[in-house]
Structure formats: structure tokens, C-alpha cells
Nucleic acid binder design. Structure first.
Lengths: 200, 200
DNA sequence: GTTCCCCATCTAACGTTGTTAGGGTGGCGG
DNA sequence: CCGCCACCCTAACAACGTTAGATGGGGAAC
């Protein structure tokens, strides 16, 4: 079956081209332009071809979002090379918000209601993993045992999401949002530290 | 012009009924069921009537969101009667997340991309005002001068939004999200206090 | 009281969306 | 060379937001 494998390769190729076309349309013209017919036209096919590769539009959008989370993972991992764990945390916050600002439409799709909660969680697992690693390193570096590690992760992840959303949902500029995210994360971590004296 | 005022009253009445029908559909069946034809049917009119009261669907949705923010304002103001300012802050966080959990579809519309950033800011001004008042009271109570008050407000508002979104975007339950929001806000405020000793 | 006009309302339609069914065509196996 | 099969397209459906034109009934004028 030599033709069989070739056809399988071609199938996978067009599937990839559909995803790339979708990403291009999304990033360049926004979510309102992300149409089955538009994508099909860009890959020089008729609309129904898309349904040979994706069950429906939501499945395609999920794939685009997964791609976005992989991209985010790559950018968040760029915080390597910084030995100071607190500074790396600040870089994480900054990079997260920067990503949201540089890919607003992709970010919108990644967090939009079209994606099932479970699927999103799975797609975001890699990016969240970076946060988990950093938070683990931070807690050991400062000799802090967090009461509930997953809870702390969710808090940080949710905080970053919320403040990054201010950056493009509201009139808050991206550079300001980066400052806000850094300050929020700094305050959060400071609040969790037990190696600082306190009186109340 | 007796008939004139009556007609004006009727016009305003149907406009109000359209909004109420929209809210009812939204809360009971979700944003995907929020359709011009569906709303028109519920108020026993044909679809084009809606366009005599709203320029387009986005304008109607904005009105629904504004109603949602007024509702949120009322619920946030219920934190009166608590003299302890820190406890009131905790109640604010809890009530915010509770609102998001009890009105998920309304909350989704309030923060959805269909609403212009400026319009949302204006609609949310009242609810944000509650936070501003509380934060002012908190800073005076603890003798803290915040470096940038508006920045602190945005941080808290964004954090609450992000963590509340975890509650219904992801699999985090509402009661857990409330705990998370409280812990996040507690850590944030603790990080901003200057009446606690520190060593680095 | 009759007539007429205006305006509120409806029906019908357009263009777009996601999605599905059915037909045609070209290349591969016998 | 023939037939079949897989691929691809055209056409269509339902539903959406939105607009234009038809229609009808009630108040105003005589």
C-alpha cells in the first residue's frame, strides 16, 4: 500500500495547512473573520473539505487554541537563564501579559467560551506546568511550604489571566498591564512567604 | 399631546420588556439562545420591532450587561454592616465570585468581546466604585498610602475577574473559587501593608 | 359619520454563517 | 480498456442579524 501512506501523508498535510490558515486568519483579521469558508478558500478548497479533518468548527478552534498554548509555553520557557527565582517569577508575569498583548485574537480564542473547560485545561497543561515548576522552585528557595500547592497555582494563573485580560478588554495598555501583573504576583508571593516576620 | 405621552410610555414599556425578556432568555438558556427572533417572540412581537428600540444586537447586549453590573453593584453593596474593613474585603471577594457563579451567562456577556471596552468601563463604574470605597477605607484604616491607587484598584479588579473566571471557565467549583479569591485578595492586601515589619 | 392619512407592525427577503447530502470526475486496480 | 472508488465540488438547509416594502387599523379632519 504505497499509495495509502502517501495519501495519509497528504491528508495530514492539508490538515496542517488548514490549521496554519486558521491561525493566519485569526491573528491577522480577528475572530470574526475566522470562517470555515474563509479558511477553505485560503487553502484552495471548498468548505466541506474542512469537515474531513475536523468534526466541526469548535474542534478546529480547539486545535488553534492548543497551538496558542504551545506558543505560550515556548515563550514562558524563555525565562530560563535567570538564576534569581523571584526575578524569574516577575519575568513569567511579564511574558504572560506580553503574549496576551502580542496575540490578542489568539489569546481571546484560547480563553473563549467555544472551548470546553476540560479540553482547555488539557491544552494549557504545558504552560501551567511552567508555572508549577517555578512555584516549586520558589517555595523551596524560600523554605516555604504552601498550604495547598494546586490552590496557589490556580490563584497565580487566574490572577495573570485576569490582569492580562484588563490589557485588551479594557483601556489598560499592555506595558501597564505588565507592571500590574508583576506587582500582583510580587504581592501574592510576599503574602505566602513565612520567612518574613509578621505581627498580625 | 395626551396620546403622545401615552405612546412614549408604551414605547419605553416595550423597551423595558425587551430587556427583561433578554435577561430571562440569557439567564435561563445561555448566550447561544439569545436571539433577536427569540426575544421578539417572547415579547409577542415580530423581530424588526427590536430595531425600533436598539440600533443592533450589540446595543441590546450592552444594555443587558449594564443591567448585570447594576445587579452586581447591589450585591457587592450588601457587604455593609460589617465594621471590620478586612472582613469586608473578604466579603467583597466572596460576593464577586458568588455573583459570577450564580449568573454565569450574564457574567459571560458582561465580560464578553461583544461589548466595547469604553462602554464596559462605564457600565462597571458603579461596581468598581464599591471596590474603590472599600480600598480607600482599608488604606486609611491601616495607615497605608498606596503608591498608585488606580493601579491597586485595577489589580484587585483584574484578580477577582480572573479567579472568578476560573470558576466557570474551568472545572474549579464556585466555593473553591471563592476561597481562592479571598486568599488572593488577602495576600495582595498583606503585600501592600506598610504597618507590618519586614526584612527584605 | 365618513374619509383619509399616518404610523405601528408584519411579512418577505438578503447576505452570511455552520453543516450536510448528493453528484461528478479523475485516477487506480483488474 | 473498463469499472470502481475515493476525492472534491456544487447545491442546499436551517438559523442568524438586518433591512425594505406591504398592510392594516385608529386617530384626526371635515
Amino acid at each position: 500500500m504505497s499509495t495509502g501512506t502517501r495519501r495519509a501523508r497528504e491528508r495530514a498535510g492539508t490538515r496542517e495547512r488548514i490549521i496554519e490558515a486558521g491561525l493566519h486568519v485569526l491573528e491577522s483579521e480577528g475572530v470574526s473573520a475566522l470562517t470555515i469558508r474563509r479558511i477553505a478558500t485560503d487553502v484552495e478548497y471548498a468548505a466541506p473539505i474542512v469537515y474531513q479533518h475536523f468534526a466541526n468548527k469548535d474542534a478546529l478552534v480547539l486545535e488553534l487554541a492548543a497551538h496558542g498554548y504551545r506558543l505560550m509555553l515556548a515563550e514562558l520557557q524563555q525565562t530560563d537563564g535567570e538564576p534569581d527565582i523571584d526575578r524569574r517569577m516577575m519575568q513569567l508575569a511579564s511574558e504572560y501579559v506580553r503574549f496576551a498583548g502580542e496575540h490578542p485574537h489568539l489569546y481571546q480564542v484560547m480563553n473563549g467560551g467555544a472551548i470546553d473547560a476540560q479540553d482547555r485545561r488539557q491544552a494549557a497543561a504545558g504552560a501551567i506546568g511552567v508555572l508549577e515548576e517555578l512555584l516549586t522552585a520558589w517555595s523551596t528557595a524560600h523554605d516555604v511550604v504552601l498550604a495547598d500547592f494546586d490552590e496557589a497555582c490556580d490563584i497565580v494563573w487566574g490572577t495573570l489571566y485576569g490582569i492580562a485580560s484588563l490589557g485588551h478588554l479594557d483601556t489598560v495598555g499592555n506595558e501597564r498591564a505588565r507592571r500590574l501583573a508583576q506587582e500582583a504576583l510580587r504581592a501574592l508571593l510576599r503574602g505566602w512567604r513565612t520567612d518574613l516576620p509578621e505581627n498580625g
